[in-house]
């Protein structure tokens, strides 16, 4: 028996918004410690790593480990049926062919149950992110809205954005046929609010170029968290991380552009 309850179904809606442009289907690995998804996009350029800890749920029970293949589009359709204030419960038996989504209104007067067929997926298990945390040359924390804005604005100029980070701050730039654009963000000396701060932790400067198309998918996670963390080292994939309240995180890995 697997059962996981979240008082705020809105969190799950936002999680789906954050992955639906990158993944058409994904395996949800459920265990005693929580729910995990690790999946690459079709082009193997980016990877989504979603982690929802069991202790972050209002109720969580997982008697045996389950791997459930789910269509992200179908899941999105079902979550659209949940009211903004509804509680959501995910439920499945031990060898499931289906998963149930149960939505309950705050006053408990409305109970809606949706059943979704699971899909058989080739078990492409990615043992990538289980190694100990890599130390990165630069780690930048900045407002997620600002990051979304910069990615959107600079995407108008070209297909890629260059991130250059030094101890002073981070510079984003793009160029294309009709011109070029640069946005510099200085490290904030004393931001009034923690969520408005720009913080740079630097071992050595980095300069990396990434595809706009993927960055603009990652920023869909913005509504999950006021701050985004960008971890960078030269010639290795970017890690773009959004915390999901007290329950977990979503990390996107994106391979940099490489010189031919």
């Amino acid at each position: 028996m697997f059962e996981a309850r979240l008082v705020q179904s809105a969190i799950l809606k936002k999680v789906l918004d954050a992955i639906k442009d990158l993944l058409t289907e994904a395996t949800f690995e459920c265990s005693d410690s929580g729910i995990q998804v690790q999946a690459m996009d079709n082009a193997h350029v980016s990877l989504v790593s979603l982690n929802l800890r069991s202790d972050g749920f209002d109720k969580y029970r997982c008697d045996r480990n389950l791997s459930m293949g789910m269509s992200i589009a179908s899941m999105t359709k079902i979550l659209r049926c949940a009211g903004a204030e509804d509680t959501v419960t995910l439920r499945a038996v031990d060898n499931p062919e289906n998963i149930m989504f149960i939505f309950e209104s705050p006053n408990k007067e409305k109970l809606a149950e949706y059943e979704m067929k699971l899909i058989n997926m080739d078990q492409e298990h990615l043992g990538i992110i289980k190694t100990k945390e890599t130390s990165y040359s630069c780690v930048v924390k900045m407002p997620s809205q600002e990051f979304s804005r910069i990615c959107r604005d600079l995407s108008q100029f070209g297909e890629s954005i260059t991130f250059a980070c030094s101890k002073e701050g981070i510079k984003f730039s793009a160029s294309g046929d009709f011109g070029q654009a640069t946005v510099k963000l200085a490290q904030t000396a004393d931001a009034d609010k923690e969520e408005e701060a720009v913080l740079v932790t630097m071992q050595e400067p980095v300069k990396l170029t990434f595809s706009c198309r993927y960055l603009n998918c990652f920023v869909k996670a913005g509504p999950l968290c006021a701050q985004v963390q960008l971890s960078m080292s030269n010639d290795v994939p970017l890690v773009c991380e959004y915390k999901i309240g007290d329950i977990g995180h979503i990390r996107y890995y994106l391979a940099p552009k490489i010189d031919d």
Partner: peptide
């Protein structure tokens, strides 16, 4: 010119 890298180049996919 530069081309988009693939994660396979950086990580060993099990």
């Amino acid at each position: 010119t530069s081309t988009q890298g693939r994660l396979d180049t950086f990580f060993k996919v099990l």
